[in-house]
């Protein structure tokens, strides 16, 4: 495990319903004190929310990843918008010619940027 903070974040992000702090340290394979430090770092970085939670009468925290705004630029290849947006064709993604054209554009733009 190279970066426990990143691992912690990934684990929390993979559970949209949230993770209990009392369970996070077990899943990460670290002790609870180290887990507290990880959670503190993530909370200070604005990456997660820490919500008070009672489980079997014991106070713990529910940890939820914050949603970051998406990057709309990911829908573009150059200035071509991906054809899937607003597409009303029957979706056969393996044989989709408009998607193939977009992928060509993506490869060309990618090569130019590399």
């Amino acid at each position: 495990m190279l970066d426990p903070i990143e691992d912690g974040l990934k684990l929390i992000q993979s559970r949209p319903e949230g993770v209990l702090q009392s369970e996070l340290w077990k899943e990460l394979g670290v002790d609870s004190r180290k887990c507290s430090r990880i959670v503190k770092k993530l909370e200070e970085g604005g990456l997660i929310d820490r919500i008070e939670f009672k489980k079997d009468g014991i106070k713990t925290y529910l940890l939820k990843a914050r949603q970051m705004p998406v990057n709309p630029g990911d829908l573009l290849a150059g200035d071509e918008l991906i054809p899937c947006i607003g597409c009303e064709l029957e979706c056969i993604v393996e044989e989709c010619h408009p998607l193939m054209d977009w992928m060509y554009q993506l490869a060309i733009v990618g090569n130019t940027n590399d």
Binding site: Q13, Y104, A107
Partner: peptide, 18 residues
Amino acid sequence: MLLKSLKQRIESIRNSLG
């Protein structure tokens, strides 16, 4: 080349979506 750029874009969208 197609696959390489596709993979990069998928990675970028995955990151963007958390």
